[in-house]
Nucleic acid binder design. Structure first.
Lengths: 161, 161
DNA sequence: AATGAAATGAGAGCGCG
DNA sequence: CGCGCTCTCATTTCATT
C-alpha cells in the first residue's frame, strides 16, 4: 500500500534535469536546457511529464528551523510491545498526525519506528513524549538523541547511477 | 560555525507565506496574497527578504526515490571512539561528502551520529559500510535500521507557534 | 514521435504614489 | 503597502527531422 509502483523509464536527459531541479527548482528552463543540451520547451515537457508520473513529488521551499524558533532537532527510536498490523497502523497514523514529527519511518532492527522531531524547546519535546509515548501503552521504550549539529540535511536522491 | 545565528523577526504574514511555500513554492504570488491578505508585490518583497536572510534556504523539487531506482532507505546510528573536535570534524565532512547519505546529524546520547541513507540495493549499503565504517578506525560501532515504510517524510517546519 | 523556433500569455520584478 | 508598468520566463502552436 505504498507507492503506485509505476516506474517510468528515465533517460539521461531526465536524470540531468532532475539533478538540477532537486538542487534549485527555480532554475529557468532555458538555463536547464543549455546545461543538458535541449531546448526550453523540451525541458518543460519532460518536467511536466515527470510531475504527472509522480517522479517529481513536490516543489517546496526549505526553511531554516532556527529562524522559526524551532531550534531543536531530536531523533527518537521507538520500540513497541505489540506488532500486530492493527497496532502498527494505529501508531503510524498517530505519528503522522503530530506536526512536530517531521519524519517517521517504520523500520526493521532493534527498534520499530524512527522519528525526526523538531521543536522550539526541550519542554515541548518533554510534553510530546508524555502525550505520544507515556500516553501510549503500546510503547515499550524509546531512546532520544538530541541533535547538536545538522551536518547534512536533505531529501535529495542521488540521480546518477 | 554553522549558521549566522541571525534571527529576523517574522510576523504573522511571513509565517503564513512560509507555510504555503514549504508546501508548494510554485504557488503564484497573487494566490498567496489572496490567502494571506496582502498584495502580490508585498508578498514578493517578503519572500525576497526572507531568502536573503536565510529563512528560506532553498527551493527544491522533491523526487520519488523509487522512481530513480533508489528504493531502500536506511537509518544508521554511529558511535565513534575518539570525540576530539578534529576527529569529529573529519567524520562530519566524510559523511557530508557521501552522496548516498541524505541526512547527517551530530547528536548527544548513546550514539554520536545519526544518518539517513538512500541506496538502490542492500549491496550498495554493504559497500558503503565497508568504505565508511569498517574503513574508518575511529568508528566504534554502528547500528542499522532498514526502513520498511516511509510513513512521513518532510523537512517542513511547523510555522505556527 | 519528439524536437526546435517563434508567438502568445501569465507571472515576477520595480519604480511610482 | 498597493497600483501600475515592464520584462523575463513559462506555455502553446506549428513546422521539421
Amino acid at each position: 500500500m505504498s507507492r503506485p509502483g509505476k516506474f517510468p523509464q528515465l533517460d539521461a536527459f531526465d536524470r540531468k534535469i532532475l539533478a538540477i531541479l532537486q538542487r534549485d527548482n527555480s532554475t529557468p528552463q532555458r538555463t536547464i536546457g543549455e546545461a543538458v543540451g535541449l531546448s526550453a520547451p523540451a525541458v518543460q515537457r519532460r518536467i511536466k511529464r515527470m510531475a504527472e508520473e509522480g517522479v517529481i513529488q513536490a516543489n517546496v521551499a526549505v526553511l531554516d528551523p532556527a529562524a522559526l524558533g524551532q531550534s531543536i532537532t531530536i531523533f527518537v527510536e521507538v520500540e513497541v510491545i505489540s506488532e500486530t498490523s492493527k497496532q502498527i497502523e494505529e501508531a503510524k497514523s498517530q505519528f503522522a498526525a503530530a506536526p512536530e514529527i517531521q519524519q517517521c519511518y517504520y523500520v526493521t532492527g532493534e527498534a520499530d519506528f524512527v522519528l525526526v522531531i523538531v521543536v522550539p524547546a526541550m519542554a515541548d519535546y518533554e510534553a510530546l513524549t508524555r502525550r505520544l509515548f507515556f500516553g501510549n501503552n503500546n510503547v515499550k521504550r524509546f531512546r532520544t538523541f538530541v541533535a547538536m549539529d545538522r551536518v547534512k540535511v536533505g531529501l535529495s536522491v542521488p540521480v546518477e547511477r
